[in-house]
């Protein structure tokens, strides 16, 4: 069941805004540059971003690790898949996690955490809802998991953030409900700045849709360090409603 539009009609609301502004119904006289949506221009812009990132990758990767550590991530730089798996396994062991939730993402094909964790008696399971258990069961299981592992759709060197785009296979809850979140970042996930990210997302948005009416995806999430609050006497406490501990596994190569 869907709720119809309630409230005052759009036209009426906009007319009152116009009236307050003392203007008539007209678009801005000059096109607003950041709204440029010409596909060729956006494609070129994105290619420029990708080229620069490829060129500066070693620096960006170092910057990402340093900034992420400052923002509260435990950063584990790993020379290869074996090292990454060892890190995840020893973390699960330390935590005594017997249930580990993960997303269903490409990265787990090259970083097979399930088998590695099974070796130490931890059950690693994909948090997807289409299984026989259904939504409520998955949520309950998530709430009982000691750790959640995801990949990164992007990682931003400027801010030390992991960006995930929840979608099929990638629950919004895997990275927020368990008390510990591990994000596996591959070199190709790394970007320099917020501007880089938004340039790439704008291209995706305008390319995907008909008549420039693309799909952003329902959610885009920046994660930068643990959940925290300073609401009582400006004293920082971690792990309020989200994870108290976050780990960035930074793969130097796959």
């Amino acid at each position: 069941m869907s709720t119809g539009n309630i409230g005052i009609p759009t036209a009426e609301f906009l007319a009152s805004v116009r009236e307050a502004l003392g203007r008539t119904d007209e678009p801005p006289a000059d096109p607003y540059a950041p709204l440029q949506d010409d596909l060729a221009a956006l494609t070129e812009q994105a290619a420029t971003v990708r080229e620069r990132v490829a060129r500066e990758l070693p620096d960006l990767s170092r910057q990402l690790g340093e900034t992420a550590a400052l923002r509260g991530w435990n950063v584990a730089r790993c020379g290869g898949v074996e090292e990454a798996l060892d890190y995840v396994v020893s973390l699960a062991t330390q935590l005594g996690a017997t249930s580990v939730a993960r997303s269903e993402q490409e990265v787990f094909e090259s970083v097979p955490v399930d088998a590695a964790l099974a070796g130490v008696g931890a059950m690693c399971w994909p948090a997807v809802y289409d299984g026989p258990e259904g939504r409520e069961a998955v949520r309950r299981r998530l709430a009982e998991s000691g750790m959640g592992i995801t990949g990164a759709d992007y990682a931003i060197a400027e801010t030390g953030s992991v960006v995930v785009l929840p979608r099929q296979g990638l629950s919004r809850l895997v990275s927020v409900v368990p008390p510990v979140h591990v994000a596996i970042v591959r070199p190709q996930d790394i970007l320099g700045t917020l501007d880089d990210l938004f340039a790439l997302r704008r291209l995706e948005f305008h390319r995907d849709g008909a008549q420039g009416n693309g799909d952003m995806g329902s959610y885009l999430n920046f994660i930068t360090g643990p959940s925290r609050t300073a609401d009582i006497e400006q004293t920082i406490v971690v792990g309020v409603h989200g994870p108290r501990e976050v780990h960035m596994v930074l793969l130097d190569e796959e």
């Binding site: 809802y129 979608r167 099929q168 919004r172 329902s218 885009l220 999430n221």
Partner: peptide
């Protein structure tokens, strides 16, 4: 720690939302 950008409701094949 978090920035969330919400664009519409969950899509048909999204896991949740």
């Amino acid at each position: 720690s978090y920035m969330s950008m919400v664009t519409g409701p969950r899509r048909a094949d999204d896991e949740d939302g």
